[in-house]
Simulated assay, not measured.
Amino acid sequence: MKKLAFFDAKPYDKIWFDQLKESYNFKIKYFENKLNEDTAAMAAGSDGVVAFVNDTVDAPVIETLYKQGIRILALRSAGYNNVDFKAAYNKIHVVRVPAYSPYAVAEHAMALLLTLNRKIHRAYNRTRDYNFSLNGLTGFDLHGKTIGVVGTGKIGQVFIDICRGFGLQVLAYDPFPVEGKQIEYVSLSELCSKADIISLHCPLTKDTHHMINSQTLSQMRDGVVIVNTSRGALIDSEALLEAIKSKKVGAAGLDVYEEESELFFEDFSNTIIQDDILARLVSMPNVIVTSHQAFLTNEALHNIAETTLKNLKSYFDGEELKNEICYQCDKAPTCEKKHANRCF
Rank of each mutant, 00 (worst) to 15 (best):
M1Q: 11
K2W: 04
D8T: 06
D8C: 02
D8S: 15
A9N: 08
D13M: 08
K14A: 02
I15V: 15
W16T: 09
W16P: 06
F17M: 09
Q19M: 05
L20K: 00
E22K: 12
S23T: 12
S23Y: 02
F26R: 11
K34W: 10
M42H: 12
V50F: 07
A51R: 08
A51E: 07
N54E: 03
D55Y: 03
T56N: 11
D58N: 15
A59Q: 04
P60H: 13
T64C: 10
L65G: 09
K67A: 13
K67M: 06
Q68D: 07
G69H: 03
R71S: 14
L75P: 00
S77E: 10
A78Q: 09
Y80G: 04
N82W: 09
N90L: 02
I92E: 09
V94W: 08
R96W: 08
R96A: 11
A99P: 00
S101A: 04
Y103I: 11
A109S: 13
L112M: 05
L112N: 02
L114A: 07
H121A: 07
A123W: 02
A123S: 08
Y124R: 13
D129C: 09
Y130N: 14
N135R: 07
N135W: 00
G139V: 05
K145A: 05
T146K: 09
I147K: 00
G151Q: 04
G151M: 02
K154L: 13
I155G: 09
G156R: 01
G156W: 01
D161G: 03
R164M: 03
F166L: 12
F166A: 13
L168D: 02
L171C: 06
D174F: 05
F176M: 11
E179F: 07
G180P: 11
K181Y: 10
Y185T: 03
L188M: 14
S189E: 15
S189L: 12
E190F: 01
L191A: 10
L200S: 01
H201R: 01
K206Q: 06
K206W: 01
H209I: 00
H210G: 04
M211W: 06
N213Q: 01
Q215F: 04
Q215G: 04
L217R: 12
L217C: 00
M220H: 10
R221Y: 03
R221L: 15
G223A: 11
V225C: 12
I226K: 07
S230Y: 06
D236E: 07
E242W: 01
I244M: 05
V249W: 00
V256F: 01
E260L: 00
D267E: 13
D267F: 14
F268C: 03
N270E: 12
I273C: 12
M284K: 05
N286W: 05
N286L: 03
V287P: 10
I288D: 06
V289K: 09
T297N: 10
N298Y: 10
N298H: 12
E299F: 08
L301T: 15
A305E: 09
E306I: 09
T307Q: 13
N311C: 05
L312C: 01
G318T: 08
E319N: 13
E319G: 11
N323M: 04
E324L: 08
I325Q: 05
Y327E: 15
Q328T: 14
K331A: 14
H339W: 14
H339F: 14
A340V: 09
R342N: 07
F344M: 10
